[in-house]
Amino acid sequence: MTHARWGILGAGDISGFFARALPQSELGRLHAVGARDTGRASGFAAEHGAEIAGTYDDVLSRDDIDAVYIGTVHTTHVELVLAALEAGKAVLCEKPLGIDPIETDAALFAADEAGLPLIEAFKYRFGPFPELLRDLVSGGGLGEITDIETTIGFTAPTREGRLFDPATAGGAILDAGCYPVSLAVGVAGWAGHDPGSVRVVSATGAIGETGVDESAAAVLDLDGIRARVRTSIVADLPRAARIVGTGGTLEVPNVWGSRSESTASAILRRPDGSVEQIETATVSPMAAEADATILALRDGRTEAPEMPWDETRATARLLADWRRALG
């Protein structure tokens, strides 16, 4: 089997996790690294065994790159997505794809025009557990879904850097809150609800001294399903989800998994009082999302079923409305 050749754009922390995950993928291997600072790209390439290093343009201009992973700051995502698609590359872009719906739509339109895969890299969507979750919800295993509760939050070690910088679209909602919003959108879609019929019912939050949202909560209406989401970059919150249906409640203590291991377990509580412990195998979620990108490329698809475009669009709309509600 010939492995697809990956280029990584961005030599930061998240790109390092992707580079370490690629050897566990079945379909791709790291070939090149691009960064604004070529010295940093060279150091990253040497550390992770990439043959090529240079600027973003250097990597995108090469004929021996099949796909690129974009791991840069939020505000550069769409610029690099458009350049990569124009260069004929499949794209796996870190979340959020765009910082607002206009950017997101522009990126998806460009991928559609190019006929190339563009996948928003919500890694928790890839692997055995999310596949089980999709089947459980879509198959009616929880009955009619009525409520979703999900949270994510951490205490940043310092109030400096991209997380606290408005110029790089910092803040809790775009950096972490996108996870619970995208999960709620996904569950609603798997349950047969319209991903286009979503709105923010109410929102609260705290804006810090640097001007970004440091913590926030929202109530969402997802075509009749009520979702409550919370996020923070200044306080630790559970990495959990609770999905309530007329036929049972699913509790997932670690719904997001980690950068190196996918989610493994959940608890299913039935209305009759019975309890079922659900266990699945785990994988490297970043390797799994890389393989989903290459599968789409080989199949001639622009989307991956794990993170379809209508859910990317709905998530972008809700994030923008949530941020707008906080002023």
Rank of each mutant, 00 (worst) to 15 (best):
residue 94 E to D: 13
residue 81 V to D: 04
residue 189 G to Y: 08
residue 189 G to A: 10
residue 68 V to R: 03
residue 181 V to L: 05
residue 181 V to P: 04
residue 131 E to A: 15
residue 80 L to P: 03
residue 193 H to T: 09
residue 157 P to R: 13
residue 79 E to Y: 07
residue 82 L to R: 11
residue 185 V to A: 02
residue 156 A to H: 08
residue 166 P to R: 08
residue 101 P to F: 03
residue 180 P to H: 01
residue 83 A to L: 02
residue 152 I to F: 03
residue 71 G to A: 07
residue 184 A to L: 10
residue 156 A to L: 04
residue 153 G to W: 04
residue 164 F to D: 10
residue 116 L to S: 00
residue 185 V to F: 02
residue 73 V to T: 15
residue 117 P to W: 10
residue 82 L to Q: 11
residue 175 D to S: 14
residue 152 I to S: 04
residue 170 G to Q: 07
residue 114 A to Y: 10
residue 150 T to F: 09
residue 126 F to M: 04
residue 114 A to P: 13
residue 79 E to C: 00
residue 103 E to P: 06
residue 54 G to H: 04
residue 88 G to W: 11
residue 119 I to F: 09
residue 121 A to D: 08
residue 121 A to N: 15
residue 146 T to R: 15
residue 162 R to V: 15
residue 95 K to A: 04
residue 172 A to P: 08
residue 163 L to I: 12
residue 60 L to A: 06
residue 194 D to A: 07
residue 145 I to Y: 12
residue 97 L to Q: 01
residue 172 A to S: 15
residue 126 F to V: 06
residue 57 D to A: 15
residue 132 L to W: 15
residue 109 F to P: 00
residue 193 H to M: 09
residue 177 G to M: 09
residue 156 A to V: 02
residue 111 A to H: 05
residue 119 I to Y: 05
residue 116 L to M: 05
residue 153 G to E: 06
residue 179 Y to H: 15
residue 157 P to N: 10
residue 181 V to K: 01
residue 93 C to E: 00
residue 153 G to I: 01
residue 191 A to S: 14
residue 155 T to D: 07
residue 89 K to R: 13
residue 57 D to H: 14
residue 102 I to M: 10
residue 88 G to L: 08
